[in-house]
Design a protein around this nucleic acid. Structure first.
Lengths: 204, 204
DNA sequence: CATAAAAACAGAATTGACTCAATTTTAGAA
DNA sequence: TTCTAAAATTGAGTCAATTCTGTTTTTATG
């Protein structure tokens, strides 16, 4: 059962994602019609809905790839953090933020975030929540690492702190993608300013 | 020019909002068809679009009423905060959270949040951002008050702290409305735990 | 190789938000 | 009162996502 059918399936998946990614970039998420994606991927409209539950799930597949790359890049920082609490946080969050617009435009992020709250139980909605959790977990891991090294006080509630840092960054990122004029540098500066309060509280 | 026409206009606004609120509650936001809202409000579909740019803006009007009530309730806490930093924050945020499901179901919140990120430049998108800012400002005002009273250190960056507290609560609230099973009590407990870190850092 | 069941496909039909040209209602002047 | 321009209403029509149903392709079996 893993012959021709499976190969064709994988190929169609790839073609749909590629066509969609190109169209989302060029004409925006709203501007990309399913009919056009289908034509470009050389499948029918019905087939697309056989592969993805709805238009949002197609975007979801693209977002997941992006976030997984970010998670991967973050591992390096957790393994080898800068020898200073403020810099360590700034470096990790910086990676998240700087990578974020690599494949996805702000409009695509807006749509992705909107869909993930609108349909939290759709495949993408669940995947998005899982990704958020993975990012939170990575921040928590960094904090644990810093505690081990002796840069962060041992009596700090690492879980709660990780959530606090992630939630704040995420909310700032949401506001960032909502304003087309917003610059990455300003976002990072603002987050650093907020984290300064935390850093003062937790550094040994 | 403020005779019959203005009265009819106000009346139609009211009828549309009332019909929409009832239907959103009963059949959910997606389930409520514009046609049905129009019928219930005894106006035509076209008229609804003369009053509101899109379906989301109707929901937006309802959300704004809700949040403005919350802001109002919050004023009391800022004017007369509990004599303890942790309790003061918990009381204010508690008011926000406890009021939040008064008129709006979780599904309505999900839709409202989704629309505000999806269409940040629509009337509702802008209004929603303004409401967020007003809530942040109120938290900042509480912190300033606590600094005046002498419960919070004067050298704390009140603006950054207000943002941190609001962003964290807001993100937690988003996750809360995404899970139908989530309980308010658990949400408040989780936020209190996160804020404990901040409280330890800023209390005199 | 023939063939029946299962899986996947195609594209026409449906659905519901939103638009727009035609019509009706109101305000205020003569 | 009567008339006219401006404002508002109407509902049929448009558009794009999603669903549905009949057809084709693939697989497994004798």
């Amino acid at each position: 059962m893993s012959g021709l059918r499976a190969r064709q399936k994988a190929d169609r998946h790839r073609r749909i994602i590629e066509a969609a990614a190109a169209l989302f970039r060029d004409t925006g998420y709203e501007g990309a019609k399913i009919e056009t994606i289908a034509a470009q991927a050389e499948v029918s409209v019905g087939t697309i809905y056989n592969y993805y539950q709805n238009k949002g799930d197609i975007l979801g597949a693209i977002v997941s790839m992006e976030v997984n790359e970010v998670l991967n890049a973050g591992r390096g920082v957790v393994a080898n953090p800068p020898a200073n609490v403020g810099d360590a946080l700034d470096t990790l969050l910086g990676i998240y933020i700087e990578h974020s617009l690599h494949y996805l435009s702000k409009e695509m992020w807006r749509q992705a975030m909107a869909i993930s709250t609108q349909l939290p139980d759709s495949p993408f909605g669940q995947a998005y929540t899982a990704l958020d959790r993975a990012l939170t977990e990575q921040i928590r891991a960094l904090i644990a690492r810093l505690q081990t090294i002796g840069l962060v006080r041992r009596d700090i509630d690492g879980q709660a702190l990780g959530e606090l840092v992630f939630n704040n960054m995420n909310m700032m990122f949401i506001e960032f993608v909502k304003r087309d004029g917003a610059r990455i540098a300003e976002l990072r500066t603002a987050i650093r300013r907020q984290n300064r309060i935390l850093v003062a509280a937790i550094a040994v």
